[in-house]
Design a binder for these strands. Structure first.
Lengths: 363, 363
DNA sequence: CTGAAAGCGCTAACAT
DNA sequence: ATGTTAGCGCTTTCAG
């Protein structure tokens, strides 16, 4: 334990530049009311002696506070969007000590009007930064244009809108996640002639083409490696359990030979329920996302493999990167941040349970 | 942007507890010279109003500095221990702004004398905390006993020593990583009659039983699921490339029927080199760890699957948790922290390249 | 346009 | 055993 040595401070900069620390502060933060001449002089000194602002002093003395708004679908407990919610909430707790509040505005992902309302509320609330799951593309662009003149940083999660101006994107590589699923499910086993994909039918067609991209990735692999294999589709309901059982019964009565199942959405556990109920054996079944119900089904062997990002953490990181931008003026290392594609089986699933909540941060 | 509201401060705690802030500071930091009675009172108030120390004020005013020593094997570029080194170094950079220095002491993992020397130097340097890869069990216990009276926090990485006193352990679940490998490599395919495991022979038998645990896990799976399958062993050198080629040639000349390979150490790429050189097809090959050479071999198809932890990040987290303990008196959430067992194939490997270096932290 | 000064909440040395 | 106080380096208000 030795004594601290002196870092370069604003005071030293001020002294060398022959101005007060108030002026140094003004030039550092691009505030108005400094002559070009002194501005240049101060910059020169800063460069010369390598001054870096001390974030601890900065945060401590800062009075300004920020408001970040997240716009996401509302969700049922145990669903994919709850994981996103958890991540944002975790970030919100940390943001508080930076005097920044994170508000979440929810919408119904199957109702464009609801999305519009959430966006309108968001714009009206005059946020300093926005984190949004932009499921409706055109609507999003319209609202973000209203924000554009304010140069507010935008982060996309889950889905990204190419061609728009955004600070960063965090999400899973959907095409590749489908491609990977095909490799794990059928590979180049040409004895597999048919595969079934169970899709959620929300009553209306989902505005989100994420699952479609996954489907396309899956099909791409099949076409390249196993062109003799056919991918059938079957729709189930996210809410009507009894109905789903009947649908599965009917489907497999008609196709008793199909031994390979995939779900491109996060509700693999719905099919797992049928597998458990009917005591079905010898079907290979791959699904997505670390929902608790999915992980349970994986442990019990009703799901063979899960492909998953660390959703909670992705949402957390996305939100925190907004905070870093506001407070430290620091941009994410990359604009597009693709999650890893973790492969979970019954033999490694237990080592993923804390993966999201464990902090990997100072403090 | 609204005005800041009041967080709970030490001053409020002091007022409510009827003491001065100096006393509150004393109890928070377990300093001497506070009566049990006031200590309890202060704790009660802290609990009640939910006081959390403001790290910015804390860091800003702190004058003390710390020294953390890490003791690890030295390494060749591109090897497993380089990943560990990277993680520690990354933590060291962050530690600097907390006035704590992280020194790394190296040893030759195949030379117990070298380990002794590193440990002696470590003890002599009087560190405030230690992060160690305790490859030699008895030696480690001897040295740590010398440290014990000082109640210095110890963190184990890679290997842990049960029955000793340690703040935390970070590492891969070795048995399970072997068990998983067996499932991925042979599963219950009873047509697989033989598997070969290539082991590194360092000239002396490794003091480290990590790989042995992996081997045992692998064998356990085979015994349970595929008892007709035999696991052969073959030794290669970590340094003599030409020799390794000959060994592989000879082995597969003798066992042309073996189509399943595993390496329990991190040098899968050595065998991958042979596979590439001899243009070998149709062998399933599983290895460990995200070494660049392994990932390259995976991309090219010479390795089928890699099982890996995020080594860099594990080392980083281990070191940072020591920092958190010293600076914030905060213990890790769990004592034993097992890494996830990430399964990498050529189809998801690209989404793991930034997994280690990406920061998931504020700032 | 620029300077002076009062904090931000905590630490640590110095008093009592 | 406890209280008091001078900073830590920066932000922000208030004066010029």
């Amino acid at each position: 334990m030795t004594e601290q040595n002196g870092n370069v401070t604003m005071e030293q900069v001020a002294k060398l530049a022959g101005v007060s620390i108030g002026t140094v502060d003004r030039v550092i933060h691009n505030r108005t009311g400094v002559s070009e001449k002194t501005k240049e002089k101060v910059y020169a000194i800063i460069e010369q002696i390598g001054y870096k602002t001390n974030i601890y002093a900065s945060v401590l003395s800062r009075k300004k506070s920020y408001c970040i708004i997240a716009v996401i679908p509302y969700f049922q407990i145990g669903s994919y969007w709850e994981l996103v919610y958890n991540g944002i909430t975790r970030a919100a707790r940390e943001a508080r000590e930076f005097n920044t509040e994170i508000k979440i505005f929810y919408y119904n992902q199957f109702d464009i009007e609801s999305y519009r309302a959430a966006c309108k509320n968001m714009v009206d609330a005059r946020p300093d930064a926005v984190c949004i799951a932009p499921i409706y593309k055109d609507e999003t662009i319209r609202f973000l244009n209203r924000l554009a003149p304010l140069t507010i940083p935008i982060i996309y999660i889950d889905t990204k809108l190419d061609g728009t101006d955004y600070l960063a994107y965090y999400g899973m590589p959907m095409f590749e996640s489908g491609y990977l699923a095909a490799d794990l499910l059928v590979g180049n086993d040409t004895s597999v002639k048919k595969v079934v994909s169970f899709n959620i039918d929300g009553g209306v067609s989902s505005p989100n083409d994420s699952f479609l991209k996954r489907h396309i990735g899956f099909q791409a692999y099949i076409s390249e490696h196993n062109p003799g294999c056919e991918v059938l589709n079957c729709s189930i309901s996210p809410v009507d359990f009894m109905q789903d059982i009947k649908i599965c019964d009917a489907f497999f009565e008609e196709h008793p030979d199909i031994g390979h199942i995939v779900t491109f959405n996060s509700r693999a556990h719905l099919i797992a329920d049928w597998i458990e109920l009917r005591n079905v054996k010898n079907k290979k079944f791959i699904g997505y996302d670390m929902l608790k119900l999915n992980m349970d089904a994986l442990r019990k062997g009703f799901i063979t493999t899960l492909i998953a990002e660390r959703t909670d953490n992705e949402a957390y990181t996305a939100t925190i990167s907004l905070l870093n931008y506001l407070i430290f003026n620091e941009k994410p290392a990359r604009q597009d941040n693709f999650s890893s594609l973790d492969i979970l089986t019954r033999y490694n699933v237990d080592f993923y349970v804390n993966v999201n909540t464990d902090k990997n941060t100072r403090r």
